[in-house]
Simulated assay, not measured.
Amino acid sequence: MSDASSMSLPEPAEGWQDGSPDAEPQLLASGEREWRVSGDWTLLALRGRYDEFRQRVAGAVAAGSDPLWDLRGVRRLDTAGALTLWQGWGRKAPARLLWLPEHVTLFAQFLQPVALPKRGPRLGPGLAFAEAQLMAFARHAVDLVALTGRLLLDVVLVLRHPSLIGWREISANVYRTGAQALPITALVGFLVGLTLSYLISRQLKTYGADIFVINILGLAVLRELGPLLAAIIVAGRSGSAMTAQIGVMRVTQELDALSVMGISHTVRLVLPKVLALAISLPLVALWTSALMLLGGIAAASAQLKLDPVQFLHLLPGVVEPVNLWLGWIKSVLFGGLIALLACHFGLRVKPNTESLGQSVTQSVVTAITLVIVVDAIFAVLFSNVGI
């Protein structure tokens, strides 16, 4: 231990005992198997000398067998000083150690086991992105199926106990998603019908088949474009509002309050929105289709000199009623799907504003995409019906 003793630092600087802030870090041998650490072991006191003290501590560890380390004389100790001692000890706590209670917190961060990342087969950037997207889609699909199952169970519950049905909530949602959507759907529907009829009329006029504008416009509007356009507008307008409403309830912890009171989220929030939109969207789709036909009549009258009365008289004869019923069935399905997706993304919102914005965006994009996909499926399955 004589060699180890020679490694001790000079005596403390003058003035350390009287509490001056510039105390030298000290490493002194006390006996053959004891080392005393004193002074300031801080970032400022050790600046430029970390390697020196680390080597001295390591040399003290190597010089004696299981020495005792006494840190009770340390005046100030911060993370830099604790790390210097820890690295000198070989990144493990000595078997014999005396320290102060406030030292425990500093060394505890080094005692935590570091979880090494698991090395698996590495994928390329493209495959890694595709894997992440696929896993996210699978999680959404599982959660959506679970929400649908919970909703079906709650439907059975409210049928047994009609007093649980939120009639006021359903009425309010019908008004917000239906009546308040009439102006924007009327404007868009009229302009789309006007444009579509104008383009069709130009082509039919070339071949002298002016009268067939009624067939094409009536079939396209009542069967496809009316319900699809209404669903897209409602998904962007009302679907986003539903997601934002439920998301804000998550941020303000209102959903947690409902859970504490034993009120089901699906009975109180999801079911009224799904029923309301399934009721209001077919009416909005019929309104949109009527305005599209009105725009088409205006364009056909101006372009082909077609009498509006003749247009309305011939329309029921060239478009079978099954097309109207098919459009209504699709609208009911679109309404329920949009509301279900809006509630799904709303319930997944985390209690922060960033998650709220992301969920609203995902809700609108997903709803519009699925509406178009479902419409395409209906077009293929019923391609020979009513045509």
Rank of each mutant, 00 (worst) to 15 (best):
V319P: 03
V319S: 05
V319K: 01
V319L: 05
E320N: 14
E320K: 15
E320M: 14
P321Q: 07
V322E: 14
V322Y: 15
V322S: 15
V322P: 15
V322Q: 15
N323C: 07
N323P: 04
N323W: 01
N323V: 05
N323F: 01
N323H: 03
L324K: 04
L324G: 09
L324S: 06
L324Y: 08
L324A: 09
W325S: 12
W325M: 14
W325R: 10
L326H: 05
L326N: 08
L326I: 12
G327S: 05
G327Q: 02
G327H: 03
G327N: 04
G327A: 00
W328G: 13
W328L: 15
W328Y: 12
W328F: 14
I329R: 07
I329D: 08
I329M: 13
I329L: 14
I329H: 07
I329V: 14
K330E: 00
K330D: 00
K330F: 01
K330R: 06
S331A: 09
S331D: 05
S331C: 03
S331H: 03
S331I: 01
S331N: 00
V332Q: 06
V332W: 05
V332Y: 06
V332K: 09
L333W: 06
L333I: 11
L333N: 03
F334C: 04
F334M: 05
F334Y: 09
F334R: 01
G335N: 04
G335V: 06
G336P: 02
G336H: 00
G336A: 06
G336Q: 01
G336I: 03
L337K: 07
L337H: 08
I338F: 04
I338K: 01
A339K: 06
A339S: 08
A339V: 04
A339N: 07
A339M: 06
L340W: 02
L340C: 09
L341M: 09
L341E: 00
L341W: 02
A342D: 02
A342Q: 03
A342N: 04
A342P: 02
A342C: 05
C343A: 12
C343V: 05
C343W: 00
C343T: 07
C343H: 04
C343D: 03
H344L: 13
H344V: 09
H344Q: 14
H344R: 11
H344C: 10
H344E: 12
F345Y: 15
F345G: 08
G346E: 02
L347T: 07
R348H: 04
R348E: 09
R348C: 08
V349C: 06
V349S: 04
V349Q: 05
V349D: 02
K350H: 15
K350N: 14
P351Q: 12
P351A: 14
P351I: 09
P351L: 10
N352R: 13
N352L: 10
N352C: 10
T353N: 14
E354V: 12
S355W: 10
S355D: 11
S355N: 11
S355R: 08
L356H: 00
L356G: 02
L356N: 02
L356R: 01
G357E: 13
G357M: 11
G357A: 13
G357D: 10
G357L: 12
G357N: 13
Q358C: 11
Q358P: 11
Q358M: 11
Q358K: 14
S359D: 11
S359F: 09
